[in-house]
């Protein structure tokens, strides 16, 4: 079961068709929606979208890794990563649709 890949263009088209905004307004809103989520995460905020899931920023400590090509040890700087937890609703929908 290989489905299609959804892109920005598909989102813009869906917003245009389903909400009836102009393509230009639709595209601007799709872009701004993603950007507002990104901005909030950048500020370290947690983003909770009910019925979809929660994006959370987690801090990773510095650790010693290895250059996989040369095998040499290298320090990996402390950094921030994004974790996503899907809501129960979408977990259930996806698991049901794809047959468990």
């Amino acid at each position: 079961m290989k489905g299609e890949t959804l892109t920005r263009a598909d989102l813009c088209e869906a917003v245009h068709l389903e909400v009836g905004l102009t393509r230009q307004d639709g595209a601007a809103l799709v872009e701004r929606t993603l950007d507002l989520v990104a901005e909030a995460l950048e500020q370290g905020q947690t983003v909770k979208l009910s019925g979809f899931g929660v994006f959370q920023v987690r801090a990773k400590r510095e650790r010693i890794g290895r250059n996989p090509k040369t095998g040499e040890p290298a320090t990996i700087n402390p950094r921030r990563v994004i974790g996503f937890r899907a809501s129960q609703v979408i977990k259930a929908r996806i698991d049901k649709a794809l047959g468990g």
Partner: peptide, 30 residues
Amino acid sequence: KDVERVVGVIFDQMIEALEGGGRVELRGFG
């Protein structure tokens, strides 16, 4: 109301793509 519907459509579309066995690719975001 329209803005609410836009946000609803965006996230619904993503869920539907995943339900169909597909992926969602948003360059720059994830």
